[in-house]
Design a protein around this nucleic acid. Structure first.
Lengths: 305, 305
DNA sequence: GAGATCTTATAGGTCATGCCTTGGGTTTCA
DNA sequence: TGAAACCCAAGGCATGACCTATAAGATCTC
């Protein structure tokens, strides 16, 4: 079997016209190079050098082989270089999981952070909601993610909470914002909720269901929409009220629902954001980078833990 | 140190998404492939796969590495293929030594023989005279040669005579061709000799010197020229006579000196042509081919031995 | 020519590596 | 929950890489 080692020795011998000089350049003893050349000749079935007392002389076969050998070693160099560049974030792709509403906290800003520091990289933020992200993690498609607890099946995962954010009630009616909203009042409200928010495994939904469970009622979902922005816009138009994380409210209300405001629930409820990855995994540099940046971003808006 | 084996295993694992399947394809046990991947990851300093219970999932670094790995292996394939083609004479260069006048016997025809059988090869016929060829052999620049004995320093060389050719006297004067030329008559003649022919080591010169030595005279070299053709042309013009191998005479006289003829020496003298190569050398297929073809060519004109 | 020098080949020994088999742990699927 | 698939770990064997020391061949010099 042909090996890179053989080719390296071959090239050194070719250039020096001497196995001894080649060995010296490569830092080996002379018999080692001799052995490599001999094994290469054997595996090719053709002599590559004529031994002529003072040094070696390449045969025409060696002349033919040389450029190919150089190409092989150059390709190896390029391969290693490409990996090195990926390691130092000069290029390559960084893939990171992130549940739906998290992009409001860290989405575009996180991508910007990465691209500012490492202009050459590609960034992929994967996942519309926590469930998908969890599946991607389990399947190994992504290495780590920012996710909303507590809905994660913690078996097999390592979860590091980094921030929590209060869930607030938003409405265009100032009267409904005068005092914190109790479970009872919430159960009577007409709500617009982003669809993703109401998926069975979603953390916000669990929190609210738990809260409403005490009143013996189900939440009155009047409208279901796809994403938070739409929900907020509808609140701004006065069609319904909603419950969203406070960070999202602060960010979206001025822009999408200028006439609306927010108020806490009573008792206060929280979404917790956490970094999650497979248990026992050793994280790649890229993953650690994303974790750090995402954590910083989210802690600017939500409360650090 | 990175190895081709690692890259092979890496690609197989990448394509199958499974070390077991990769091992099966490569004909190894699964732990062997696992070990190769691990060592590759270690040498690169980056994980290439995430182990996720059922199979392995490539990381983005693996995505980056893959095309480079394929390029490396392709280059190796090409290198081996190029050598294979040279071995089977589909391409490459064949270098063969040949002393000056030998090209009259086998030069163009020999090249034609090779090119007819193996259209892709390059042919290099090296050497203007035997001395140069001998030096090239000693230095390893050429592997084997067709050469004129007896002037070869036989130490270190293996010499196989293949043909001999009579030395004949050529002249435009029919009177001088009526009977074989004796040493005495030769010593009185005014001769044109190709320069190479009169070099101190040349076989023809030695033969003639030996012959003339008996008469106690030196040869009368009236004109010295570079090559045989010029000498023959001068003979054709009647400026002088010459002594050349009979094969050369038969080939050149009709073309270059239509009015001239030839006659034997008395006693007859001979040049011997032989295949020569370094003693103990194992000849490459290309050298063997050239030896066979050159021998056949020269034996068509000179007398086989 | 004879000796000094340079170079390659060989021999023998050590150590690392590749590969295998066996066994254990984890995930997935029925 | 059991079975199957798959990966990792450990131990053992064989091969290969590398070394030192030495022999053998070729070249150069005096």
């Amino acid at each position: 079997m042909l090996s890179l080692h053989q080719l390296t020795c071959f090239l050194a011998a070719y250039e020096h016209g001497s196995l001894t000089a080649a060995a010296e350049e490569l830092g080996y003893a002379q018999p080692s190079v001799s052995e490599q050349i001999r094994s290469l000749e054997k595996s090719l079935g053709v002599p590559l050098f004529r031994r002529v007392g003072r040094g070696v002389v390449p045969t025409t076969v060696a002349d033919t082989l040389r450029p190919h050998a150089e190409r092989v070693l150059a390709a190896v160099e390029e391969a290693q270089e490409s990996v090195r560049r990926v390691k130092s974030f000069e290029t390559g792709t960084i893939r990171f999981g992130m549940f739906g509403t998290a992009r409001l906290y860290a989405g575009a800003g996180l991508v910007a952070d990465v691209l500012t520091r490492y202009p050459g990289v590609r960034v992929e933020l994967i996942g519309q909601n926590s469930t998908d992200v969890q599946e991607d993690l389990r399947r190994g498609r992504i290495e780590a993610a920012m996710i909303a607890v507590p809905q994660v099946d913690s078996e097999g995962f390592e979860i590091t909470p980094v921030a929590r954010d209060e869930l607030v009630y938003i409405s265009r009616d100032p009267a409904r914002l005068e005092s914190p909203v109790t479970a009872h009042r919430l159960s009577l409200a007409s709500l617009v909720m982003p669809e993703a928010t109401w998926r069975s495994d979603d953390s916000t939904r669990r929190v609210l269901r738990q809260m409403l469970h005490e009143t013996g009622r189900n939440p009155q979902t009047r409208i279901e929409v796809e994403d938070v922005e739409t929900a907020v816009e509808l609140v701004g138009m006065g069609y319904a009220d909603s419950v969203i994380p406070k960070g999202a409210a602060l960010q979206l209300l001025p822009r999408l629902a200028p006439g609306a405001g927010w108020v806490s629930l009573r008792p206060r409820q929280y979404d917790t954001f956490a970094i999650v990855h497979r248990a026992g995994a050793t994280l790649s540099p890229a993953a650690r980078l994303m974790i750090d940046l995402a954590t910083a971003r989210i802690q600017e808006i939500a409360d650090p833990l």
